[in-house]
Write a protein that binds this DNA or RNA. Sequence first.
DNA 1: TTAAACTTTCAATAAATATTGAAAGTTTAG
DNA 2: CTAAACTTTCAATATTTATTGAAAGTTTAA
Lengths: 168, 168
Amino acid sequence: MDLQTSKQKFIDTWGSLGSEWGINKSVAQVQALLLVSTEPVSTDEIMEALTISRGNANMSLRQLLDYGIIYKKVIPGDRKEYFVAEKDIWKWAVKIAMLRKQREIYPVMNVLKELKEETKKIKTADGKEFYKTVDDIHVFTEQLSNLADKIFASNRGELLLKLLKIVM
Amino acid sequence: MDLQTSKQKFIDTWGSLGSEWGINKSVAQVQALLLVSTEPVSTDEIMEALTISRGNANMSLRQLLDYGIIYKKVIPGDRKEYFVAEKDIWKWAVKIAMLRKQREIYPVMNVLKELKEETKKIKTADGKEFYKTVDDIHVFTEQLSNLADKIFASNRGELLLKLLKIVM
DNA sequence: TTAAACTTTCAATAAATATTGAAAGTTTAG
DNA sequence: CTAAACTTTCAATATTTATTGAAAGTTTAA
């Protein structure tokens, strides 16, 4: 199998994984393409490599820029915009995780908090049980969230390894 | 706000969160409904509470049973099947995490391994760079996967707290 | 048996989500 | 300026994914 085919396999796999986890397939594929490109890539090259439209390419790029996991790259004497991926996996994994936590988990945790306040004073067995269920989930989520913050606040993976040693 | 309304809010929130993370909305809502129900719930009651069809209710229930995060409950003298949720959040969170890891992450890790083998011997700069990119992701994924295994292998959250203390 | 009670299946349909592509907008070189 | 080069937007369309509901299948009580 030649390198080009391997790269394509990587892009496809990455796209499928994204889909399964609620990340748009094109967005994941564009990131994958940039990850395996040695040179900065233009919108037109992306369109051709992934056979997607200009609109799709543009929107995917904007989302990745918004995530902060790809960068614009100016090539002197060329008016086109070029893009490169953040290659440090630790950096982009942290960014994606934090952003999703912020955008998707945090609002849910807030609802859980609200629900606890709303039902705190209910004295029925049913009400108490509901409070407990919500509280359990809230506490659990907060613990995981804190753990994620701590792990990701540390630089690179040394901490991860340290943790592994402790746990094993 | 009354308890019923709070429960509904919980169910809706849970459904949205599920959608964002690639879990079918109905499936998430059925779990939420069972989580906030004091008594075992029948298919007909689920259909009515969530205004979903029999087919949808049945499929959602099967998936949750398959996940192992809800149980069938026989009520003596009644031919209907009733269902209850696993209320221990630690247990069901672990099951979902492990299942998704197994079904979605593991195959990707295998592709990464394959890609490494396929490109190991390529001597070009481009080939070496691709190998490194894939290897980085593979190694990172394996570390996270191991950490997750270790955390989830421990009972309940004590370990989580222990880790937090070490890290803080 | 058998018929009522209940569960499962799955083709048809609806709903949600992603993608296109052409028009509008913007920037820059001359 | 202004026209070419490039980027962005977004209504229309296509694709994917979820849901329905009625028919088929299964179980059980009598």
